[in-house]
Design a protein around this nucleic acid. Sequence first.
DNA 1: TGGCTACATGTAGCAAGACGACGTGTAGAC
DNA 2: GTCTACACGTCGTCTTGCTACATGTAGCCA
Lengths: 105, 105
Amino acid sequence: MKADTLRGHLDALLLAVLDGRKLHGYAIIEALQLRSDGALDLPTGTVYPALRRLERAGWLASEWDVVSGRKRRTYRLTRSGEQALAAERADWREFTAVIGGVLEA
Amino acid sequence: MKADTLRGHLDALLLAVLDGRKLHGYAIIEALQLRSDGALDLPTGTVYPALRRLERAGWLASEWDVVSGRKRRTYRLTRSGEQALAAERADWREFTAVIGGVLEA
DNA sequence: TGGCTACATGTAGCAAGACGACGTGTAGAC
DNA sequence: GTCTACACGTCGTCTTGCTACATGTAGCCA
């Protein structure tokens, strides 16, 4: 997929992949690869800053684990993150309807 | 619609609205409003620079008209612009499939 | 005549955000 | 002992859409 097309939709992806489960950053990248059949291979320089941003926004909460000697920062959705995810999904539907409508007119 | 969500898709919109017809900048803005049922109301500071950019890329060609004393720069798709539009449409379908797939998983 | 609105084009500077390149460190396999 | 996978992070760059501003015509209405 063309680079940078994601712009503006990354937050939605991150929230969606954390819906109902806790994951650490590296696992989030893998989960997105898996769910997109390999189409999404986000670089760490994209994902880690975005996770911090979402945490600052109050949509994610994180805590440190240590698994077999390796430190992981594990993220989960907050209540407000769940609401944000619902809003992002609604925005996505509207967005695709509008743009798709123009492109296929 | 949330500001800036357009990012990365504006080119596709502009090419699509010029598919099969010639329009000047102001009319392009109106045509996008019409086709989107008012959802898209792009500011001139967004559209005019983008049209120049697409022309520099060789996807649009323009010429000046004068209609009842007013000067208009009328744009049309070039051959390479038509190809670009087809590519943009294909990208759009892939993009929505990938992101939509993750959001609705 | 003066002012308002619609029509019409443009520029400059800002801000956000995704990305590439880089830096750091552990565990385990070979 | 070196290499790969795992794991986290930062910094600087670049693109690009937007706000605000600047300019000018045509036509209507008071």
